[in-house]
Design a protein around this nucleic acid. Structure first.
Lengths: 344, 344
DNA sequence: TTGAAAGCGGTACCAC
DNA sequence: GTGGTACCGCTTTCAA
């Protein structure tokens, strides 16, 4: 009989984190790990009796499942990525809030990506985000680099583009046409009889689309001398104030000013007030976004209403529908409406 | 010779997702997987030559690492959770934005948890969030349930409580004292000579602390008949308007009104304007938060300035310091300042 | 500097 | 219904 000692067991240090695992719960409940897994994910597949024993064990241990492990095994991270330029002082906060709320009720968590207003930032951000294996992704805008597009496609997950419009989204879309906004506002104001226009515009991609459409539409009606002040994104009160001052000081006052956002429109109203100009009689103002304060602070501020809650909610519904493999409309134009206040 | 067939190889369906893996990159580069891993995480440990071959392979394949797998193995998710009540129309958006920005540059992504203003929501949210194995967690406020506290402790991760103050945080804290805000505002106004006070307050936990301290301080100075309008969180223009109307219509006008937020203060100013009251001569107003629009729209709006960027940034720095095991101040009172405008 | 092997904590697959 | 087993894709451990 051989007296060879058994090969020395390699005693590696265990790598466990020390946290309660599903295995331990299983042992405690006297079932196999997979049964615990089922008790958690599809309780209806487990006999009520065992279910109770398992739940008791879970409560007793304070077990918290490890979704990284679960996600690795099942390929479902239960994370959804959301990319927006900014959230402070912006309309995106509300969109994200609704999006997050809705996904939360379905057990998903939102991973936030802030890209700023410069397109270059998006690529790296997308890669970083995709490496967390999100189950879906929410994007702001419809113009994305080749790299981003191909990575997104490779990830084979639902993608919702928002806050803009294209008939050919990467996957799904809920938004509105900025081109149409610019055109509509121009027509609206021109039809009201305004002939001398001013504009304060940020220079991000979508504001530029609104601007071009606004100018083009006016040009069709033979108005080509629009006074334009351009400012950097994100717009704020200070920049807006500088913009309107630039316009007003240049002489030949416009009758109406179209602003890239309600915040900018507000600056205009403030400046007008300072100068003793009456709004809209001496100077009419129209903004964009319909921020909450708008109708309260300056009742004479007209604006373009965007239903931000609807965008967030709808985007969440689209994502969920796709994850649950339900049928769904893939392209939704949520529209907008021009709100005339103070008879602008 | 036996003709037994070899034991049938179990042909299980492979579970791979089909995405490029580190293994494949390794094969392509002619090295072992672990070397690729090192090339990614500690490139200085890999010979430059191999490094290049590996990077080439990565580029060629468009490989995106799977951080779920990496996180499971290393116990580092590179995810940080942030819990705030809301982000839209609120001061928290800016805090979160700065927090996210800073962590982003360090390779972390923020997972957003919106708890609303009701404490009950927090427990479930915390559990859901912890199951994603965040490397750290950002909390709003300092009052958390037993369950939440013990779960947080069990998770053994850095915890930063914010937007409030306590000498005994769960782990770390960056914030300010709402009690002190209430007291300071009361003293400030009283010292200015005001004797008849009004108050519009939301009923969330921290607003209540400010209110109590405000009232207690006034009581010490023999002022006990403060007109109070209470509204539900989150406050908005409409609710604020209703609040001030309630106060003004009740007779015996206050000389000054302290509001839970700048948004509410704005409603007051709007209503005052409507009634032809001059601010601050007929009615002075002081808000809380120092929102961007405040000094622009109504130059007469005094407020309490909270440096939200600093809170977000500082919280991020604390988290990073702890993750990188650097020494750091664990409790930071960021303070606040009363800003008197329009001679309030 | 590099690699082989084991393991992280779950779930898919298949058999019973 | 339930359980055994392999495996998800990466990193740690340990040895070379």
């Amino acid at each position: 009989m051989s007296t060879h000692a058994p090969p020395p067991k390699k005693l590696r240090k265990p790598r466990s984190s020390g946290a309660i695992t599903l295995q331990e719960v299983a042992k405690l409940a006297g079932v196999s790990p997979i049964t615990v897994s089922r008790a958690l994910n599809r309780p209806e597949m487990v006999k009520p009796q065992k279910l109770e024993a398992i739940q008791a064990a879970i409560r007793r241990t304070g077990y918290v499942p490890n979704l990284l492990a679960g996600g690795l095994a099942s390929k479902k991270s239960r994370l959804v990525a959301a990319m927006v330029p900014i959230i402070s002082n912006s309309m995106f906060a509300e969109v994200i809030e609704k999006f997050t709320d809705r996904l939360d009720t379905a057990g998903y968590k939102v991973m936030l990506g802030l890209s700023g207003f410069r397109a270059e930032n998006e690529d790296g951000l997308i890669a970083a985000v995709l490496s967390r294996q999100p189950d879906a992704i929410f994007l702001t805008g419809v113009n994305h680099s080749r790299t981003t597009r191909s990575r997104l496609l490779a990830a084979r997950i639902p993608v919702v583009e928002t806050w803009d419009y294209t008939p050919t989204p990467i996957d799904m879309l809920v938004g509105f046409s900025h081109e149409k906004v610019g055109r509509t506002v121009a027509e609206y104001l021109h039809d009201k009889g305004y002939r001398r226009f001013g504009m304060i515009s940020t220079e991000d991609e979508r504001a530029n689309i609104r601007k071009s459409a606004f100018l083009a539409t006016l040009a069709e009606r033979d108005i080509t001398d629009v006074r334009i002040a351009t400012i950097t994104s994100p717009g704020n009160f200070k920049k807006g104030r500088a913009g309107i001052i630039e316009i007003l000081d240049a002489g030949e006052l416009p009758e109406v000013v179209f602003c890239s956002s309600d915040v900018l429109a507000h600056s205009v109203l403030t400046e007008a007030q300072t100068r003793g100009m009456s709004v809209p009689a001496d100077l009419a103002v129209i903004g964009f976004g319909d921020l909450e304060f708008a109708p309260y602070t300056f009742p004479a501020l007209s604006t373009v209403h965007i239903d931000r809650s609807a965008i967030g909610l709808r985007a969440a519904e689209m994502v969920l529908a796709r994850i649950e493999e339900r049928e769904i409309e893939k392209i939704v134009d949520i529209g907008f409406s021009v709100i005339g206040r103070g008879s602008t």
